[in-house]
Design a protein around this nucleic acid. Structure first.
Lengths: 201, 201
DNA sequence: TATAATTTGTACCGAACAGTACATAATTGA
DNA sequence: TCAATTATGTACTGTTCGGTACAAATTATA
């Protein structure tokens, strides 16, 4: 079927990762096609041929983020289930904030940023609902983990899985904003310590 | 001194409040001058004469928000100091989320939204530092309250004022994102209940 | 009532925006 | 080697962007 035709001069997955970082840093409305083509080192027709239009590229960037940066964090909760939940939850938080000190990545969480931008009149319905879906999806994943923990009696303070999920997610979101504000690793660690302490003792 | 000259046909404070809501909903980059003049019902030269340029208007909107929507919340912590801190903190959180169900106001917290947008290449240094300053200012206000509480032995779990401040602010930020995501009053109340429960028992 | 001061409305500016037409270049399969 | 196919680079489209020049309208003071 395919085969004929000139070869693409760039790696599509690499380019998507670069585009994601631009959107992550500047938001949808704050990113122009020139910003993208500059960073990706390709010209507009190539970008359109590979990724569709600006909105579709943004949606692809959101999915790419979840797949490569968001979802992997769940492993810290799932693995080593012999360790108490308090330890795994702390590792989950720690891993999340550690991204914030990789100077190659923008600050905060891309999904959180997009939630703030979402709902505005510049964001298309399609993108609004994708942002909502990705938020809901992470929430479901978290809840399914805490449902298991609840069955094993690991949830603290008589919280049920739904309450635990909503609260942990709230703290995660808050940490994202604190990270975006440029808080130091020391400060973010302190917040995590407080979260674990107040939840589990 | 002043006196001569045609009268302004609109109320400047009202117009600023309207402009704030547009920026709050759509962000800085997501708001155009046409969006503003449409909502304010004035034309561009009037807007420029009254508020300077887009960036200055945005900065004024941020200050207006803090003065009329952010700072007043602090009263819930300061007044009725005979009541235990747990009650006052709960009222503070409740008052914060209640704004989210006023359908005339955009969802979430304007400052939180601006933090997410801040740092991007489209936001001018001046606005970046104002956003940072306003974040830091709220934090100082909160910390001065918790310093007093600490002296009265009201802080729970052996937290000091700095730890308490950072954690409460994190939960507030998280609530803002949850609100922006469209969580119901019931869900946000549940999160607040969990926060109070885990902090104080 | 004349004058100075201020706001308003219209109409415009150059620049940047998202997106595309089209010719050229490169690659595969026949 | 030739035809079909795909990607690239240039140059362009119409629209919207933030911002302003300028004349008409309105007001207070002298």
């Amino acid at each position: 079927m395919t085969g004929a035709g000139r070869k693409r001069s760039f790696d599509k997955e690499e380019a998507l990762d670069k585009a994601m970082r631009v959107f992550w840093n500047n938001g949808y409305a704050g990113t122009s096609l020139s910003d993208l083509t500059d960073v990706l080192g390709i010209n507009k027709p190539s970008l359109y041929a590979a990724f569709g239009n600006k909105e579709q590229l943004f949606n692809s960037a959101l999915n790419h983020y979840i797949e490569h940066y968001g979802s992997p964090l769940m492993q810290y909760l799932k693995e080593d289930t012999k360790q108490p939940l308090s330890i795994r939850l702390e590792n989950y938080f720690l891993a999340a904030i550690e991204k914030n000190f990789n100077n190659e990545l923008p600050k905060g969480c891309f999904i959180v940023n997009s939630c703030c931008e979402s709902g505005g009149t510049n964001i298309v319905d399609n993108t609004n609902s994708l942002t909502q879906d990705l938020g809901a999806c992470s929430e479901k994943a978290l809840e399914s983990i805490f449902l298991l923990e609840d069955q094993n009696g690991q949830l603290p303070k008589k919280l049920n899985a739904t309450e635990m999920t909503a609260y942990v997610l709230t703290v995660m979101y808050g940490l994202s904003i604190m990270g975006r504000r440029g808080k130091s690793r020391r400060e973010l660690h302190s917040i995590i310590k407080t979260a674990i302490k107040t939840l589990f003792s």
